[in-house]
């Protein structure tokens, strides 16, 4: 094993081999989550701070459970994205945290680049749990892990990602991850949510018509339409959004018959995804959540540089 990254800042910096090591490690850890006693001593004595400067339930919970199942001491802090409001800079906040000698800081922050900023200024490992509209590496990894489980491979898969591409860190990380693993990415969303140059990030094709985008794909990934980030200026209405960019029992048939349906959550039922599809046989949405814990265990384990895997 040759995982050399001290920090997990994004998928952009990773090689195909790095991604495979993470996925293989996650596969091995996944079994722990099915045990009666879901705990191994791998990270005993390590301290992990989950610093969430932006609201999150699923990701924070997932990281916390991942840390605890590896026997690390996990502590959660949350705060406003704008540390300036509190009069303390992000650097000072981080230095204060660091003075208490954590081994890993898991950070979620509303500002793109915040984890990179910290990585340059503190000594411990930084794991990016989502920064602005930039990257969300653990999400992409759990997505790819889920695809690999269901499809047996990533190479050659056609993956359609539909929704607000502009504001999505999930999209950026998935483009990097899927492209490095040999999949093809199709992106589709309203004209107001397709940022310039997105096709340059990887093996990407941009579609303006959702029917074309999902035709014959292996995977459909629906993005949450984040109403809190939209003003009325980006979309006429959620009703119209659902009509042109929502996944429903009719258009889902355009994909391959064995296509899987994914969603990073939280879902807006009836907006980007109809309940029939969200709960349908093709959905793997809860598999994604389950794999999230395993992937995050793998990331925490790998950055902590533990030499031999102690899963028993």
């Amino acid at each position: 094993m040759s995982f050399k990254h001290k920090h997990i800042l994004g998928i952009e910096q990773m090689s195909k081999e790095d991604i495979e090591i993470i996925l293989d490690t996650a596969d091995a850890f996944k079994e722990i989550n099915t045990r009666d006693i879901k705990k191994v001593p791998t990270l005993r004595g390590k301290t992990i701070i989950n610093a969430f400067f932006e609201a999150s339930t699923r990701t924070r919970l997932s990281f916390e459970i991942a840390g605890k199942r590896l026997s690390a001491d996990t502590v959660n802090i949350s705060g406003s994205t704008s540390s300036v409001v509190k009069g303390e800079t992000l650097e000072d906040t981080a230095r204060n945290i660091e003075a208490m000698a954590p081994d890993i800081i898991v950070i979620r922050h509303g500002h793109s680049g915040a984890p990179h900023y910290l990585a340059e200024r503190v000594g411990c490992s930084i794991v990016n749990a989502g920064d602005g509209a930039h990257e969300h590496p653990s999400q992409a990894l759990l997505d790819v892990m889920t695809m690999r489980e269901h499809k047996g491979r990533i190479e050659g898969l056609e993956v359609a990602i539909i929704g607000d591409i502009t504001h999505s860190r999930v999209v950026r990380s998935n483009i990097y991850c899927l492209s490095k693993m040999g999949a093809k990415v199709r992106l589709c969303g309203p004209g107001t949510m397709l940022p310039p140059g997105i096709e340059k990030l990887g093996n990407v094709k941009v579609y303006t018509d959702m029917q074309d985008a999902i035709k014959d794909v292996d995977v459909i990934m629906m993005l949450r339409i984040q109403m809190e980030r939209q003003s009325n200026i980006m979309l006429p209405s959620l009703r119209e959004y659902a009509r042109f960019y929502g996944l429903n029992p009719t258009n889902v048939k355009l994909a391959k018959s064995d296509a899987i349906v994914m969603h990073p959550g939280p879902m807006n039922r009836g907006v980007e995804i109809s309940s029939v599809v969200a709960d349908g046989v093709q959905n793997v949405i809860l598999d994604q959540v389950e794999n999230g814990v395993a992937v995050r265990m793998a990331l925490l384990y790998l950055v902590s540089g533990v030499e031999s895997m102690q899963t028993s």
């Binding site: 793109s112 680049g113 920064d131 602005g132 509209a133 930039h134 990257e135 502009t166 860190r169 950026r172 940022p195 310039p196 140059g197 997105i198 340059k200 990030l201």
Partner: peptide
């Protein structure tokens, strides 16, 4: 500036 770099960095253009 809005363009491929802002898209990549996830910064508002």
């Amino acid at each position: 500036n809005e363009g491929p770099v802002s898209t990549e960095l996830g910064l508002k253009g």
